[in-house]
Amino acid sequence: MDKKVTTPIHSSARRNFLKQSSAMVALALAPPTILKAGDKKVEDQIAGYFEKVPVKLEINGKAHALSIEPRVTLLDLLREQLHLTGTKKGCDHGQCGACTVHINGKRVNACLTLAVMQGGNKITTIEGLANGDELHPMQEAFIKHDGFQCGYCTPGQIMSAVACVKEGHAESDDDIREYMSGNICRCGCYTNIVDAIKDAKKGGKSL
């Protein structure tokens, strides 16, 4: 296909930080492999290289040593860079709970979490909940009680539900309803979600 990019790209410096004094330091520190030519691509690579910071974190029991831009949210890191797409984006603003993951055992919204701040933390996503082929009791309960329809909010619901029980906030139906209210289900499966959580809790298996 010989369609070209719509507008010619100028090779003038385009990075905020390249305009700043630190640019020279940056260039001096850049690995030689990315300093071969003066076109946009190379500048982008330089820019990309220096805008990233190293982060080490553990996801679902696996250690990751990553280099990421500080502006990358944990949600986008999981979905776009690590291809762990089980964690969902529903609103991107902490208003729906579809992105719920556990950080060091606590449920949080990954969309408002900067990945760069999670160095050293243990993150569990829906992909890390089952024990191999053996589903987590909460996952089983959601299937048994049909606690979902489209399935999109489901990973967040389940991660939230597991935490809800562990926190001791699943002592009554009303308790579950209140403490599961940070996870919106537009298909409206709340009745079944409450049943699933009660059942999983009653099951007594380790949650």
Binding site: G94, G97, T100, K106, R107, V108, N109, L112, T113, S160, A163, C164, E167, H169, Y179, S181, G182, N183
Partner: peptide
Amino acid sequence: GASPQLRNM
């Protein structure tokens, strides 16, 4: 206020 997840953050 907010949700359990947000209160954890």
